[in-house]
């Protein structure tokens, strides 16, 4: 019954903050090795949804959720160890947020917390991750410098790289390019296209053009509801719902 290529299954997920609903009974699946774009106006619950997937939402005591989320067919609250889950489901935030330590240590941070001590192994992980995030050539000679000295675009690629260092299977991007120039944005989009060969990606973006450029499928959220999910091409050309059509044609949002 369960489709094997469904990496994430969301079943009637509802989330409230202090009993104010932010997500209302959302159900859909994310397929393995796809880039799923999530679009929608402000406060439609996109960030809330992402933070539920890796249980970062646990940090907020005001938040309550109901429904089910299965990753690899295992319930994230009942079957997953939360620390393993967060390694499996990496997250890149809207604001580039490197840790205030060296570039090398930013990348080694996750593996070290996981108990990796071997220097060679750490160096290999660092190099591999930086290469996959298209950052290696720019920083290979300054790995011991503070990550805070990098430009915004470089910091964001560093954050992608540090997520990759955890050997995740799913990567969540929350408006990863909102503060970046077009060239940095293009680099991150290239990295995403490359990454989907090995990972499952979810990209929340306020930029419908970006969603159209990189997503395989697109979900449209509105006021906590999933209005429509379909092939990107269809969402942007022949959406089924009037509200989707209104949003993608730029009439509101």
């Amino acid at each position: 019954m369960v489709n094997a290529s469904e990496k994430i299954q969301v079943k009637e997920l509802s989330v409230t903050y202090d009993s104010v609903p932010a997500l209302r009974s959302v159900s859909f699946s994310v397929l393995e090795h796809e880039i799923l774009g999530i679009i929608g106006p402000a406060n439609s619950g996109k960030t809330t949804f992402l933070r539920t997937l890796n249980r970062l939402s646990d940090l907020n005591p005001k938040l309550k959720s109901s429904g089910e989320v299965l990753i690899d067919e295992k319930d994230i609250y009942k079957k997953w160890n939360v620390f393993q889950l967060r390694k499996k489901v990496g997250m890149v935030f809207a604001l580039p947020s490197p840790l205030p330590i060296s570039i090398f240590e930013n990348l080694a941070y996750g593996p070290r917390r996981d108990g990796v001590r071997n220097k060679t192994r750490l160096s290999e992980t660092v190099e591999r991750s930086l290469k996959a995030a298209f950052l290696w050539d720019e920083v290979k000679d300054r790995l011991n410098e503070s990550a805070m000295k990098l430009s915004g675009g470089q910091q964001q690629r560093l954050c992608i790289a540090r997520t990759l260092a955890l050997e995740p299977e799913v990567i969540l991007f929350d408006e990863p390019c909102s503060g970046l120039d077009p060239i940095s944005t293009a680099m991150i989009e290239d990295a995403m296209r490359e990454l989907k060969k090995r990972y499952t990606l979810i990209l929340v973006t306020n930029n419908t053009k970006q969603a159209a450029r990189v997503s395989d499928r697109v979900a449209f959220f509105l006021m906590g509801e999933l209005v429509e999910i379909d092939q990107a091409q269809k969402i942007f050309t022949v959406p089924k719902d009037k509200r989707t059509e209104g949003y993608v044609s730029g009439r509101y949002g």
Binding site: N54, L56, F83, K87, G90, S97, L99, P100, Y109, R113
Partner: peptide
């Protein structure tokens, strides 16, 4: 200490204590 440091660390699978010890206290 910026919230982004804590969330970044937690999102990489660090425990609360690891986050305090490795990131929050040094910063």
């Amino acid at each position: 200490v910026p919230k982004g440091y804590r969330e970044g660390s937690i999102a990489m699978g660090a425990t609360k204590w690891q986050t305090i010890h490795r990131i929050v206290l040094p910063s």
